[in-house]
Design a protein around this nucleic acid. Structure first.
Lengths: 243, 243
DNA sequence: CAGTGGTCTAGACCACTTT
DNA sequence: AAGTGGTCTAGACCACTGA
C-alpha cells in the first residue's frame, strides 16, 4: 500500500504547530491568515483549514476581528479522548515508555449480544485478544478485543497480539479501522480486572465499551477496556454542537 | 428560500439532516455533492462543509469515489460527550422531560487550587450554585458551578439558579461561554452525592471536573458533576487524530 | 479607519469506485 | 469512461476588533 504525501493542509498544520511549540510567536499571537498563506505559498483556504483543525484540538483560539492566539490551557492536554487511537501512543505522550503484555488469545462463540454488535450469527467464532499496556512494569490499561473469526483467515500467532489492533486488521484482514463508537462506563473493578491492573478489587475505574468500524462502515471489532485512573486520566474539550 | 442569518452551511446541514431523519434517501444513499449544491442553490464548498459536520458527528459517512451514506449506528447516539452543552438538552434528547432543582447557593472563599484554576487570588469570593437535574422526580445529574464573585455584580436571586449556566453568565456577567476543558474521573459516590442522586453510597459513577472559558479564553467557571449511570450514559466517536 | 477572521463562490484538478 | 468525493486556488464580501 502506497502512502500519499500528507496534504498541504496537514503540512501547514504541522508547520504552525511546530512554531507554536518552539515559542516562535510573541505573546501567543499568531500571524494573520493572509500572512501565513504568503509565507507558506498556499491559499488562505488551506491555512484556514489547518487553523481550524488546530482550533478544534484546542491548540489555538480565534477572535473575529482581533486575531489568532495560542491557547495555553489547551496545550496541556496530552490525551484527548476523541483522538485516542493507540494506547501506546497515549502513554508515550504522557512521557511514559510503554510495553505490551499479551494475555489470553483464544477463540469463543459469539453471544447473542456480541453477534448483534458485530453483524454475526450467535455462536459464530470470535477471536479474543487480551492485552495489558504497562509503564515500567506497572499495568495501566487492560483491553480485550473481539474480532469475527471469519476475518482472520491465517492462524494468528502470539506475536501478532503485540501489534496495535488496527495494524493487525490491516495486515491480516485488509480492513482499515475508521472509527470507534464508544460508551463510557463507570465501574468498580472485579477481581480479575483488578488483578490484571494491580489494584484493589472494587477500585472505581473507567471502562470503555466500543465497537470499531472499518472503511466500509462495517463493525470489525468489539473492545472492552479498563484503566488505572491514578496513572492515566482522560480529558476532552466540550463545545456547543455545531461550533 | 435560503437566506442569511444562520450560515448557509448550517442551513444546508439542517436541511440534509432533516431529509435523513425523514428517510428521504433510498437505501441510505445521499445525493452527490454537486446535486445537493444545485438543489439548494449554493456552492459545492458550502455543501461540503455541511456534510463534513454531519460526518464528524457520526450522522453520515463518505467513501471516496463511491458516494455519501447515512450512518445508521451513528444515528443512535443521543448524547455525544464532546457536544454536551446543557444537561436539560441532553435529557430532552433522551426522551425525558427534565426539571431542575436548585440546591445550595452560597459564597465561599477560593481555595488555592480553585484560585489557580480561575485566575484568582486564594481567598477571593466565589459564588457556588448547586443544581440537580431530574426526570420525573428522579435525580439524574448533580452539578456544582463555581463562579468568581467579582463577575456577579448584581445580587443573584434563587430564580437565577434555574437558568442554564451559560445564560446566567451571558445575562449577569456579559461573558459568553465558549468551551469547557473537562476531566473524566471514575468515583465511588460519597454519602452526600449519593443522597442527592438517590442511589447507594459507593455506587460507581462518572464525575466531570471542568473549567469553562469565555470568548476571550478567560476561565469563568469551575464545574463538578456526577451522574446516574443507570439513567444517563455518555457515548462518543473516536477517530484517528487529524482525520 | 485599517486589519482581522468568517462566509461563500466558481472552478480546477486529482484519486478513487463503479459500470 | 463516467461519476463520486478529496484537495486546492483566487478572489469577493461581510462582521467585528482595536487604535
Amino acid at each position: 500500500m502506497i502512502t500519499r504525501s500528507p496534504s498541504l493542509t496537514e503540512q501547514a498544520k504541522a508547520h504552525i504547530k511546530e512554531r507554536i511549540l518552539s515559542g516562535d510567536f510573541e505573546e501567543g499571537r499568531i500571524p494573520s491568515e493572509t500572512e501565513l498563506a504568503a509565507d507558506l505559498g498556499v491559499s488562505r483556504t488551506t491555512i484556514r483549514d489547518a487553523l481550524s483543525r488546530l482550533e478544534h484540538e484546542g491548540t489555538i483560539y480565534r477572535k473575529q476581528g482581533a486575531g489568532t492566539f495560542v491557547n495555553e490551557p489547551g496545550l496541556q492536554i496530552k490525551s484527548r479522548l476523541e483522538e485516542i487511537w493507540s494506547y501506546e501512543e497515549v502513554l508515550t505522550d504522557h512521557g511514559y515508555t510503554p510495553s505490551v503484555r499479551v494475555g489470553k488469545v483464544l477463540t469463543e462463540s459469539a453471544s447473542e449480544r456480541l453477534a448483534a454488535e458485530l453483524n454475526l450469527a450467535p455462536g459464530d467464532p470470535v477471536v479474543v485478544f487480551e492485552k495489558v499496556f504497562l509503564e515500567n512494569d506497572l499495568p495501566v490499561v487492560l483491553t480485550t478485543n473481539r474480532i469475527p473469526g471469519g476475518l482472520v483467515s491465517v492462524r494468528v500467532k502470539d506475536s501478532d497480539g503485540k501489534k496495535p489492533l488496527y495494524e493487525l486488521l490491516e495486515d491480516h484482514c485488509g480492513r482499515s479501522l475508521s472509527y470507534y463508537l464508544s460508551e463510557i462506563i463507570p465501574v468498580a473493578l472485579g477481581t480479575y480486572e483488578a488483578g490484571q491492573l494491580g489494584v484493589a478489587r472494587r477500585t472505581p475505574s473507567l471502562s470503555f465499551e466500543e465497537i470499531g468500524f472499518d472503511q466500509d462502515n462495517e463493525p470489525v471489532v468489539k473492545a472492552t477496556s479498563f484503566f488505572r485512573d491514578d496513572l492515566l486520566r482522560f480529558r476532552l474539550i466540550r463545545r456547543k454542537a455545531g461550533a
